[in-house]
């Protein structure tokens, strides 16, 4: 048979998902808008003192990034489940492991990557010291990829449910915790003048583990969701 190879098929899925995202620009804009809104609310709640804001900035930026990722992770497989594309994907001869990685890759590009790129602007809004910005971007780049992978597990497990929104938060928030802890620690270390490298290395190690294991869990979750 002339079925395309796994790599070729992954690129096709990636292009398809990115094209779909571009056709719905609002869904790309939503997490960024959410990020901007929450970050601009904090000075109102905490008071405008630059020192207070700078103290809280690493945590605020990371928690906001985490929540905006949580908001979108529910939708990774949703529309494909609703229109039957997911059934076709499961029947494809190519390994599902790589196919779901392509889905998550597209999700990360349209949420985490963009968030990491615009994060310096928000960091300046919160008066984050300049030496922390590089660490913030690096930790967000690695961390949001991790969050997308973990969120994908929750999305795969709850895609068959009519209202999976609350359940997915309960399922994946505990797994988000380590990412949040090491992500903020990296930024805080850079701000106080310590090397951020070790924290980023731990995040990287977690990312490697997630890339190896999360697709297995996602593939199993999708098969269960379609079977039910």
């Amino acid at each position: 048979m002339t079925a395309p190879g796994a790599g070729q098929f992954c690129m096709r899925l990636l292009r398809r998902q990115l094209l779909l995202a571009v056709r719905r620009p609002l869904e790309i804009g939503n997490p960024l808008l959410f990020f901007a809104m929450v970050v601009s609310l904090f000075p109102l709640g905490l008071g405008p003192s630059p020192q207070t804001l700078a103290d809280f900035a690493p945590g605020v930026l990371w928690i906001t990034a985490l929540l905006s990722n949580l908001l979108t992770s529910d939708a990774v497989f949703r529309s494909d489940f609703d229109d039957g594309s997911l059934e076709q994907l499961l029947l494809a001869p190519q390994p599902l492991y790589l196919s779901v990685l392509a889905y998550i890759g597209a999700h990360w590009i349209t949420t985490g990557l963009l968030l990491a790129i615009v994060s310096p602007v928000f960091a300046l809004m919160l008066n984050l010291p300049g030496q922390g910005i590089a660490a913030l971007m690096a930790s967000l780049l690695i961390g949001t990829a991790l969050l997308s992978l973990i969120g994908g597990i929750g999305a795969a497990l709850t895609v068959g449910l009519k209202r999976g929104g609350m359940l997915i938060s309960l399922l994946i928030l505990p797994l988000y915790m380590p990412v949040l802890i090491f992500g903020t620690a990296a930024v805080q270390a850079a701000v106080t003048g310590f090397p951020a490298g070790p924290y980023l290395a731990i995040l990287g190690a977690m990312l490697c583990l997630a890339i190896a294991l999360a697709p297995v869990a996602m593939a199993a979750g999708l098969r269960i969701s379609i079977d039910a």
């Binding site: 094209l19 779909l20 056709r23 229109d83 594309s85 059934e87 994907l89 494809a92 001869p93 190519q94």
Partner: peptide, 26 residues
């Protein structure tokens, strides 16, 4: 396999739907 659902993406054109189909055809 053709199921009850069309597996077509509303946002893609028929041409794109066939070219990017998730069933792993050539």
């Amino acid at each position: 396999y053709l199921g009850h659902q069309s597996a077509l993406k509303a946002l893609l054109t028929p041409r794109e739907n066939l070219a990017f189909h998730v069933s792993g055809d050539s």
